[in-house]
Amino acid sequence: MTLWLIVPAAGRGSRMQADRPKQYLPLHGRSVLARTLARLHQVFPEAALRLCLDPDDAYFDPDDVPFSEWQRVEGGSERVDSVRRALSTLAGKAADDDWVLVHDAARPCVRREDLAALSQALEHEAIGALLAAPVADTMKRADARGRVSHTEPRDGLWHALTPQAFRYDLLRQALDAALATGTAVTDEASAIEAMGLSPLLVPGGRDNLKITRPEDLILAARILSLQSETDSASQGVEA
């Protein structure tokens, strides 16, 4: 069984107010995209990658891809469009029950142990799973005036993270059905949910942030430094 990775990286990142898409901003001496791909490769070195890029991308460097088997895919205007195009390249190659993991290009801080936990959870899972973190903050519902309408109970609320993993054929059917019915798809899990199915939530670190705004890049750099220090200390104890 082949493990397939899809990394949508065709966004323009306008909210970063930078001179280039956010996935190409420098992070610890490499681009955000390079850091993300390297982290995925550390846990899934044998996976086959589909990298979704803007057709006019002038910043991509193939040397940033550590995977031996990978293919560039023309990204769409929305994330779901990119994922669907990537899935179309797997026709005739992926088995219906192959796992497909979709991960945001702008999440370079996902922990290796969380990736491993997600992989382990899939061993006995029929539908699929996603990394997620329980909501810790008080949640407010706003009204049309931007004022608090009411407080949402946070019991049972989770922040959806990535990777999100689903069987190839199920994910393909779910995204196609969402497109046909006009169902809003904000992530892969939402398309699966629209089919009446319930993906498994796998607890992941809250430091698996998605770089969206300028301050997120600073925070990501600090997170990577702390993760590196923790790994070094752990290796020292083992030695």
Rank of each mutant, 00 (worst) to 15 (best):
153 P>R: 08
152 E>I: 13
79 R>D: 08
198 S>Y: 03
115 L>S: 00
81 D>W: 00
80 V>Y: 08
238 E>N: 05
178 A>I: 06
96 D>K: 02
29 G>N: 15
214 P>S: 11
145 R>H: 15
208 N>V: 04
9 A>D: 01
147 R>A: 14
18 A>N: 08
89 T>Q: 08
56 D>P: 04
161 L>G: 04
165 A>K: 03
114 D>T: 04
25 L>D: 03
127 I>A: 01
6 I>W: 00
38 A>E: 15
120 Q>Y: 00
4 W>N: 00
11 G>M: 09
59 Y>D: 06
150 H>Y: 11
138 T>K: 12
126 A>T: 05
226 L>E: 13
237 V>Q: 09
64 D>E: 14
32 V>P: 15
59 Y>M: 06
99 W>K: 05
119 S>L: 02
25 L>M: 14
142 A>D: 12
215 E>H: 13
153 P>T: 06
80 V>K: 14
20 R>A: 11
101 L>V: 01
111 R>G: 00
184 A>D: 13
3 L>Q: 09
174 A>I: 04
225 S>T: 12
104 D>H: 06
43 V>E: 13
106 A>T: 11
63 D>C: 07
128 G>E: 05
54 D>S: 08
100 V>D: 00
224 L>R: 07
224 L>H: 07
220 A>V: 08
24 Y>N: 09
68 S>Q: 09
180 A>I: 03
44 F>T: 11
12 R>H: 09
28 H>P: 10
106 A>Q: 08
53 L>S: 09
193 E>V: 15
18 A>K: 14
37 L>P: 14
234 S>I: 14
190 S>K: 05
208 N>D: 06
172 R>L: 15
96 D>F: 00
48 A>D: 15
121 A>G: 05
11 G>V: 12
132 A>D: 07
112 R>W: 06
19 D>K: 13
137 D>R: 08
208 N>W: 07
112 R>D: 08
181 T>K: 09
82 S>D: 08
63 D>E: 15
39 R>M: 15
214 P>Q: 12
56 D>L: 07
140 K>Q: 09
223 I>Q: 11
220 A>L: 11
10 A>V: 01
192 I>T: 01
19 D>V: 06
16 M>S: 10
160 A>P: 15
7 V>E: 06
67 F>R: 07
